[in-house]
């Protein structure tokens, strides 16, 4: 089964094909809204995300504070808008670093083969011997807790996964006619990798990255929820959920709304990723 994909032929049709499917269209719209809200948070949020106001502690959702206020009197809606910048920034950066590392190692491993391939794959196997969350914890144990640590840990923990996946794609690309003819015309390895292998592997890398982004968002928020990621007073969504723990009897809104946004972010990414996966699968054309 040959898996090839030529975005270069009709790149303008791609967003259209993404939006053809109602589910992925909904996902794309939610994702764009969440990112826009995170970027514009300082402008559009009705209240300050960090200002303590002891005169309005634990107010239930209402017309002034849409999502209520927390135990320190901060507006939860404003905090969620600001928190998106934290959660999404770290998850996106970790995924981007992870997939770029995976692209480098995966393409080199698959294209050159031989001892380089063996060496890279043995190291990858050792890393894959750890469940991802365990690897994240081990890295946090070394580097200490914090949101930036999760960024680095997320990248390190996912590089082996992307390396393994993209090596497979590179292997299927490597022996195709256009690569062989480039080689017989005397093109250098650098030229072939950059102009022939990379453009064909890239769509798969993007799809895997989109599918992986959801898990990284869950991990970022989850680790912050158990206190290993963002620390107070950060409005990171998982950290907000953590702050709601002592108040689950009296203030459900402190737990429900931050979690809802984690869910929406993961859902939107998964809906888009699923559509990308279907578009890439030659059996669905």
């Amino acid at each position: 089964m040959m898996m090839t994909f030529r975005p270069a032929q009709q790149p303008w049709r791609f967003p259209g094909r993404l939006l053809q499917d109602p589910f992925s269209a909904v996902g794309a719209v939610i994702l764009v809204l969440l990112i826009a809200a995170a970027v514009l948070a300082p402008v559009i949020s009705p209240f300050d995300a960090l200002e303590l106001r002891y005169d309005r502690i634990l107010q239930p959702p209402g017309s002034v504070h849409w999502f209520g206020t927390d135990d320190l009197g901060r507006d939860i809606f404003s905090r969620i808008l600001h928190g998106g910048a934290e959660t999404l920034r770290v998850s996106l950066a970790a995924t981007l670093l992870g997939v770029m590392g995976g692209l480098c190692f995966g393409i080199i491993s698959g294209y050159f083969g031989g001892w380089i391939d063996d060496l890279i794959q043995r190291v990858v196997e050792v890393f894959l011997a750890f469940p991802t969350v365990l690897l994240l914890i081990a890295i946090i144990a070394v580097l200490g807790r914090g949101l930036e640590v999760i960024l680095i840990a997320g990248a390190i923990a996912t590089i082996p996964i992307y390396t393994r996946l993209l090596r497979g794609i590179t292997l299927s690309v490597r022996h195709q006619d256009y690569i062989v003819s480039a080689q017989s015309l005397g093109a250098g390895h650098g030229h072939i990798l950059l102009h022939h292998v990379l453009p064909n592997v890239l769509p798969f890398a993007l799809t895997y990255a989109t599918l992986g982004l959801g898990s990284i968002i869950l991990a970022t928020a989850g680790l912050s929820y158990i206190g290993l990621g963002a620390q107070p007073p950060s409005p990171e969504w998982g950290a907000m959920l953590n702050a709601g723990r002592p108040h689950i009897r009296s203030a459900w809104w402190m737990s429900v709304f931050p979690g809802l946004f984690i869910f929406l972010a993961v859902l939107s990414v998964n809906l888009v990723g699923e559509r990308l996966r279907v578009l890439l699968d030659p059996r669905n054309r």
């Binding site: 689950i248 737990s255 429900v256």
Partner: peptide
């Protein structure tokens, strides 16, 4: 896809509530 996207820890908090 919805099931896959639900954060288990958030679901757990809601279940507790």
């Amino acid at each position: 896809i919805v099931g896959m996207s639900l954060p288990s820890f958030w679901l757990a908090v809601i279940a507790l509530i």
